[in-house]
Amino acid sequence: MIRDILVNLAQGVETDRACDFAASLAANFGAHLTGLSVAYEIDVPPFYMGALPTDFIDAQVLENQAAAEKASARFTAAASASGVAHEVRSLSASLGVAANSFAEMARLFDLTVVAQPDPDRPGPEEVIAETVLMESGRAVLIVPYVQTKPFSAERAVVAWDGSRPAARALAEALPLLHRTKEVEIFRVVSHRDEEDTVGADVVRHLAHHGLNAKVRKLPVTSGEPIAAAILNEVADQGADFVVMGGYGHSRIRELVMGGVTREILATMTVPVLMAH
């Protein structure tokens, strides 16, 4: 069951989509909700320090603190309106330190909710989302920046390729899948008419959990990119969320995401639960 949810709180926005979605999700599961509000520190290279006026740096620090306080207040209002038990945790740190701290926090929560990066509003969301996905060891639910509906789980699409990340995502998605009426296992295969024993095995596994699922196959010979195929299937089925593995490599200085994962993160239209 999902009893403990963590959400990263956005700044500089009038409506925090991930916060609102997390509040509705917590209300649906009767879960406790924790929001992390970060007052981002200015990370200025040493050789620039002398070129920046002290009053400019001080003003930026105060602005970031005010933005964090506003995010906390917005979270408290949303959680209170949803009637869920909640708390706010605050942190003052650079983006890199905040992202790693958030990933460490997420290890002791059942589910972590983050916002999809908005290409028209550059911010910390991309670093936060990728770091928690790659480093937390837990499932991450990514909410589109255009999301307006509260949590709903009528229909789900599970993008299954038999990989370790896909297996982890499926296992951690079970509490969500138990709220659905329809589950589709979406498979990419070499030919449309080939026997897909893997898809049948996933259906069998979910049946033992009391879930009825069907398999839909897409032949790779169609030439359609996998990420686009997943999103088209979501649109065709009217799915409420997607379950899939998140692919990438551990980072030294930056995260290197797999092509399908990065494309989904950039173009997703419904919440996506990922695990690495």
Rank of each mutant, 00 (worst) to 15 (best):
A27H: 13
L206R: 13
R216N: 10
W160S: 10
R251F: 04
D55P: 00
A67S: 13
R155I: 10
T15W: 07
M244D: 08
V157Q: 04
A85Q: 14
N28H: 15
L9R: 05
L133N: 00
D201Y: 02
V113Q: 06
P150I: 03
V198M: 10
L177F: 12
C19W: 03
L25E: 10
E194S: 14
V84E: 12
Q237G: 04
A169N: 02
G246P: 03
M268E: 02
V188E: 13
H276F: 01
L255W: 13
V260T: 15
A77W: 03
V146M: 11
S222K: 10
D43V: 00
Y40G: 06
I2M: 13
A207V: 06
R179Y: 04
A239W: 00
V84H: 12
L265K: 07
M134L: 10
L170D: 11
A71R: 08
I230D: 12
V256S: 02
G30D: 11
P45L: 03
L36F: 06
A153T: 00
D43C: 03
P122A: 09
E125L: 06
A39I: 01
G35H: 00
E130V: 00
V61F: 06
A153W: 05
R187Y: 09
E14S: 15
T148S: 10
G199R: 05
E233C: 10
M244T: 12
S90G: 03
V127K: 13
R253K: 15
A228D: 14
V13Y: 12
G238F: 05
Y145N: 08
P122G: 11
R107C: 08
P124G: 03
G246D: 03
I142E: 04
A59S: 15
H32V: 12
A71T: 11
T148Q: 08
A78H: 12
Q116T: 08
G199W: 07
S82F: 02
V61S: 13
V158W: 03
V114K: 07
V242K: 07
P175N: 05
W160L: 09
I226R: 14
I128G: 03
D110G: 11
P150W: 06
A26T: 08
E154N: 12
L206V: 12
E194F: 13
S163R: 09
I128P: 02
V146C: 05
H32W: 09
G248H: 04
D20E: 15
D118M: 01
A73T: 14
F186P: 02
E130D: 07
P119I: 04
E63I: 11
H205I: 10
S37P: 02
A229C: 10
V270C: 13
R138Q: 13
A115F: 00
E41I: 04
E254R: 15
A106S: 07
P122M: 11
A10G: 07
T131P: 02
E263L: 06
Y247F: 14
G259S: 15
P144S: 04
S250G: 11
A235N: 09
R89C: 04
